[in-house]
C-alpha cells in the first residue's frame, strides 16, 4: 500500500472492479470512487486511512493540489528510499515529498485557509455518521482517546465533505445511524458517504439517499446495513 502512492491513471483501468467476479468495493475501490468527485483546480485535504489512498487515483492531467494541515500545499508522493527528509512530513506524520510549486506555512495559516473555505474538498474517515450529517471520529469514551487533531476544524468549516468508511463496524453494527452514539466531531456537516456497499448522500432535510450501489451490492443490502432512515 505504501508503495503505490500516485499510481498513473492507465494502471488503474486494469484494477477496476469486474462486476462478474467482485462483490462490493475494496478500500482501494472506495478511494477510486471518491476520486471521481475531484474536479480540476481543486485544493483537497485528505484524511488518514482510506482518504490517503485517494491520491493514487487522481486522473492524470488534472491539476489538483493536496493540502496537508500541518502546513503544506503541494504534497507529492512518498520519497524514494534514502531520500526521506525528517523535516518533510504530512499530517499523518509520514515522510513525503513536495511537488514543484509547493508552499509551506505555519499551522495557524493552514487552518486559516481551511476556515476561510479556500480548501475545496475534504475527505475523511469516520466511526459513525448520523442521518442529519453529524460525524463522530475522535473518541470512544474510556476505551480510545486519540484526539481530534484537525478533524473538528475541517468538518466545521468545509462545505464539501465526503466520508470514506466501512458501512458496518467490526461487531457488524451499522455506522450509518439515526443519531451518533459516540462523542461528536461536528454537526450537520457530512454531505456524502462512500462505503464498500456504495455511495449515499445525506439529504438537507435529514435522512440518507442511495446514490449508487457497488457492484455486487443491492439496494436491499445497503438498507439492511444502514440503521438510519433511507429515503427513496
Amino acid at each position: 500500500m505504501q508503495g503505490d502512492c500516485f499510481v498513473p491513471r492507465n494502471d488503474i483501468e486494469e484494477k477496476l472492479p469486474n462486476p462478474q467476479i467482485n462483490t462490493m468495493w475494496t478500500k482501494e475501490e472506495i478511494a477510486q470512487r471518491i476520486a471521481l468527485e475531484i474536479k480540476d483546480g481543486y485544493y483537497v485535504n485528505l484524511g488518514i486511512g482510506i482518504p490517503t489512498l485517494v491520491a493514487n487515483y487522481i486522473p492524470e492531467g488534472m491539476d489538483v493540489v493536496l493540502q496537508s494541515e500541518n502546513g503544506l500545499l503541494g504534497m507529492g508522493p512518498f520519497p524514494f528510499e534514502g531520500e526521506e527528509d525528517a523535516d518533510t512530513i504530512n499530517a499523518g506524520k509520514q515522510t513525503i515529498t513536495m511537488l514543484p510549486g509547493s508552499a509551506v506555512f505555519d499551522s495557524a495559516m493552514s487552518f486559516g485557509m481551511i476556515r476561510a473555505k479556500k480548501v475545496n474538498l475534504t475527505i475523511l474517515g469516520a466511526m459513525e455518521v448520523s442521518e442529519n450529517g453529524d460525524i463522530a471520529n475522535w473518541k470512544i469514551p474510556s476505551k480510545m482517546v486519540k484526539g481530534m487533531g484537525g478533524a473538528m476544524d475541517l468538518v466545521a468549516s468545509a462545505d464539501n465533505i465526503i466520508v470514506a468508511m466501512q458501512h458496518v463496524n467490526k461487531a457488524g453494527e451499522s455506522k450509518l445511524l439515526p443519531e451518533c452514539t459516540l462523542p461528536l466531531t461536528g454537526v450537520k456537516c457530512v454531505k456524502r458517504i462512500v462505503t464498500e456497499l456504495g455511495v449515499l448522500d445525506v439529504l438537507p432535510e435529514g435522512g440518507f439517499k442511495i446514490v449508487e450501489c457497488a457492484p455486487g451490492a443491492s439496494v436491499e443490502d445497503i438498507k439492511n446495513a444502514t440503521a438510519g432512515r433511507i429515503l427513496t
Partner: peptide, 29 residues
Amino acid sequence: LIPQGTLATRCMAAGYGMPAIFTPAGVGT
C-alpha cells in the same frame, strides 16, 4: 484535547495581542 486549528489560532491570538478568537470548530460537540 482541543482542535488543532483552535490550538494554533489560540497561539496566534496571544502573539497578536488579541484576547480571544471565534472558531466554528467544536460547535455542538
